[in-house]
Simulated scan of single mutants.
Amino acid sequence: MVAWNSTLKAWLRRGVLFALGLAATIAIVRMMRSMDWESVGGALGQLSWWHLLILLAVLVARQVANAAPLSYYIEGISLYRATINDLAATMLTAFAPPPSDMALRVAMFSSWGISTPVAIAGTTMNALTFFIVRFAAPLFGFALVLATGRALGFRWLDAISLLIAAVLIAVVLVITRSDTAAKALGESCGRFACRFKRSISPASWGQKCLDFQRELSTRFSYAFPRSVAVSFVMVFLDGLLLLLAIRFVGLDSGALSMMDIAVAFLFAFPLTAFPMSGMGVVDVAISVACIEAAGTDAVQEPVLAALIIWRVFNVAGPLLLGVAASAMWKRTVRPGRQSLPHSP
């Protein structure tokens, strides 16, 4: 019966993802067919070399903010090393399926003298923090809608996203304050690591994670709020990338105000949970919201051009930076320290 329920849940999950993917594909195809590609090219042609430098600077700041929680959760990891680790792992996800990125993260942390259980626990906390912020982003969207007197429309559905964020916060609080939950997390991580080395003991990892939880309990009040705050800074910088891209292709505040763009971005941000940061799904959501806010289809081509620029920087950009980060790590790490997760 349990196996049947698990199978049913798996198929339901696949069905929901397939339906969402199909809906997004249909929307994208329809949008592409109605697009004046000559106008899109003309909008892209307005991009100057100094625009690229500004966008690159914002991208680098975004990636540093994205990696900063690792330096809060894992004692002894500098902001520089956290950024190198995060960029390299991001790059690997584009070429190899999970858990390859976790293997690389742990190998890098191990080369810097961080034990595997602590590295995985810190990385897990980092991921949980990011998911909390990702699903909490519409909260600011709701605030902007209320403050500017805009119609909410179907955006009320993002209340589901806020509920997910609340649940994740509860999970984090339970894990960091409950010995039982912390031990269970460590054992789960141990079973995960067994995929790399079968001699690993999940029970030992559970104890190590419990030890880490007890150590984190003295750091949690320091690490968690700072991690949430800096993750929201990352969201702000990602939105700034989009705003700058829209301005650089010729859409001024008369066509689309900063509030129009912010609302479109914040309500679409939870959709970045889809693969490749929700490429396609997020873009359609933002494009539709911008056209609705402008009240005319005339912004459709410039917005698409801006979205292309935004995606080059927030998806392709981190991959290229990740290649450089991985090379930098390999050049500085001592021989014999590059290894997959090992038993503590």
Results as ranks from 00 to 15, higher is better:
119 A>Q: 05
114 I>A: 02
1 M>K: 12
26 I>Y: 06
260 D>E: 07
206 G>I: 01
101 D>Y: 06
83 T>A: 11
112 W>P: 06
268 A>D: 03
50 W>F: 01
163 L>K: 00
66 N>C: 06
153 G>I: 03
185 L>Y: 07
234 M>Y: 13
130 F>N: 13
184 A>Q: 11
40 V>H: 00
148 T>C: 01
148 T>A: 08
43 A>T: 02
321 L>A: 09
123 T>N: 14
26 I>T: 12
31 M>V: 10
200 I>V: 11
132 I>V: 15
197 K>D: 15
198 R>I: 08
13 R>G: 15
170 A>F: 13
92 L>V: 14
42 G>L: 04
188 S>R: 13
205 W>S: 10
128 L>Y: 15
307 L>A: 12
33 R>D: 14
222 Y>L: 07
290 C>F: 03
3 A>R: 14
290 C>N: 12
250 G>N: 07
178 S>F: 04
300 Q>I: 08
63 Q>K: 12
318 P>E: 15
257 S>I: 10
89 A>H: 08
253 S>C: 07
332 T>I: 00
5 N>L: 09
43 A>E: 01
2 V>R: 14
160 I>Y: 09
241 L>F: 07
108 M>K: 06
19 A>V: 12
175 I>P: 02
286 I>W: 05
13 R>Y: 01
321 L>F: 01
76 G>Y: 12
99 P>T: 00
14 R>Y: 13
177 R>C: 09
304 L>Y: 02
287 S>E: 09
232 F>E: 09
52 L>H: 07
91 M>Q: 13
140 F>P: 00
178 S>C: 06
37 W>P: 15
154 F>L: 15
93 T>E: 13
278 G>Q: 05
11 W>V: 12
60 V>L: 08
102 M>D: 06
167 V>A: 15
300 Q>P: 03
90 T>K: 09
211 D>C: 02
272 T>H: 05
282 V>T: 14
26 I>L: 15
130 F>Q: 14
154 F>T: 09
112 W>H: 05
168 L>D: 06
115 S>W: 00
11 W>T: 04
180 T>D: 14
199 S>M: 07
101 D>F: 03
319 L>D: 06
57 A>R: 11
238 D>R: 03
97 P>D: 11
88 A>V: 02
237 L>W: 03
262 A>K: 00
15 G>Q: 13
214 R>S: 09
45 G>C: 07
195 R>G: 14
143 A>V: 11
69 P>R: 00
342 H>Q: 13
281 V>S: 11
71 S>H: 05
235 V>L: 04
284 V>P: 01
220 F>N: 03
325 A>Y: 05
123 T>D: 05
61 A>W: 06
125 M>A: 05
269 F>I: 04
25 T>L: 15
